[in-house]
């Protein structure tokens, strides 16, 4: 078929946006985990510890991620003043500005409530808000890229950024990387004896890492299934979607996709969990290094996924000939079939 294929580069040129998407999703994941663990803890000490580690982790992650987002702008000071300058409430960037603007203070307040022991009712009230806000934080990064229902006619011209799959993929990836970060945080804090006054807490850190590891297995399986559905639908989709599929799964980005994401972020962590279970059940050993490796692999895979999605977004939906088919209202014919349309 005759078609003009446009490539445009901006967000993939610097580290800012891929790292923000990674850190924003990660922070959403850790906040959700912290709040859920807090609400479900009851009297179990290890859930309390999980909530505490996650709450502390969320703050630096969202601060670095938010700064990375703001400084990719041509005018960063207007990013900080978003309530004044972001006037188009149709746009996901404005909605996301408010989500981030609510999320960051809440995560700081929540961590402070843990640190200063402000009492359970205050903390849990924040956790009740924190669960939806954390999910929204991860979800929004996906909606930003796929601009669901914002563009008139629900059409978006970046075929890889499919609004049916990307938001859920980012939530699953945010949760799996969030669990990995919590597990890693627990393992590292278990190595810092000055943090604890008794040995019982050090024992708890291992239990927390195990919980995070186990929950991560389930999340990674769900993420893998979702990625499969995503790419299966791309492979049989519109011309642009097929081109995006070829770019990511067969073309220039395929080493990143297969080795960087599928192998590193999905397959290797599952293998690591299997090996770890064998060690524990059969040899009655406690191989900490396997858990360390697993958590780091999941985090690397999550970051590579964001890079793939941003780099793959440089491919525009092809403009099909003749131009009378282009979406020029008043003169042109029907709009070109975009993803989601």
């Amino acid at each position: 078929m005759e078609a003009i294929v446009l490539w445009q580069h901006k967000w993939g040129l610097t580290f800012h946006i891929p790292w923000y998407l990674f850190l924003g999703g990660l922070a959403g994941g850790t906040m959700t985990i912290a709040a859920l663990a807090d609400l479900l803890a009851g009297t179990r000490e290890r859930y309390r510890y999980l909530a505490r580690v996650s709450a502390y982790l969320t703050v630096p992650i969202i601060v670095v991620g938010g700064l990375s987002l703001t400084f990719h702008l041509g005018k960063p000071e207007r990013g900080f003043g978003f309530p004044l300058f972001f006037t188009n409430y149709q746009s996901w960037m404005t909605i996301g500005g408010w989500i981030l603007g609510a999320f960051a203070p809440l995560s700081i307040a929540y961590a402070a409530a843990w640190y200063f022991n402000l009492g359970r009712p205050i903390r849990r009230a924040m956790a009740v808000v924190g669960v939806p806000l954390g999910v929204l934080m991860s979800l929004y990064t996906g909606f930003l890229l796929s601009a669901a229902w914002v563009v008139p006619g629900d059409r978006w011209y970046v075929p890889l950024w499919d609004n049916r799959y990307l938001p859920v993929l980012f939530v699953l990836s945010g949760l799996s990387t969030g669990l990995a970060a919590c597990g890693l945080g627990a393992l590292v804090s278990g190595r810092l004896p000055w943090l604890f006054t008794d040995d019982r807490m050090v024992e708890e850190t291992w239990a927390v890492a195990k919980i995070a590891s186990l929950a991560d297995v389930a999340t990674i399986l769900a993420e893998g299934a979702w990625v499969y559905l995503f790419f299966a639908s791309l492979a049989v989709g519109t011309l642009g979607q097929q081109m995006a599929f070829k770019l990511v799964a067969r073309g220039d980005l395929s080493p990143w996709f297969w080795w960087g994401f599928v192998a590193t972020g999905l397959a290797a962590p599952l293998l690591a969990s299997a090996v770890e279970t064998i060690f524990e059940r059969i040899f009655h050993a406690r191989p900490g290094w396997i858990l360390y490796a697993k958590f780091i692999l999941v985090l690397v895979g999550g970051l590579v996924l964001r890079y793939i999605v941003v780099w793959g977004g440089d491919l525009k939906a092809p403009l099909i000939f003749p131009p009378s088919m282009w979406p020029v209202p008043g003169i042109g014919g029907p709009p070109i079939p975009g993803p989601g349309g």
Partner: peptide
């Protein structure tokens, strides 16, 4: 004057 250079329009436009 008001553009902040976020690049969202660059990705929204089908014509580049």
């Amino acid at each position: 004057e008001t553009c902040i250079g976020c690049g969202y329009c660059l990705y929204a436009c089908p014509f580049g």
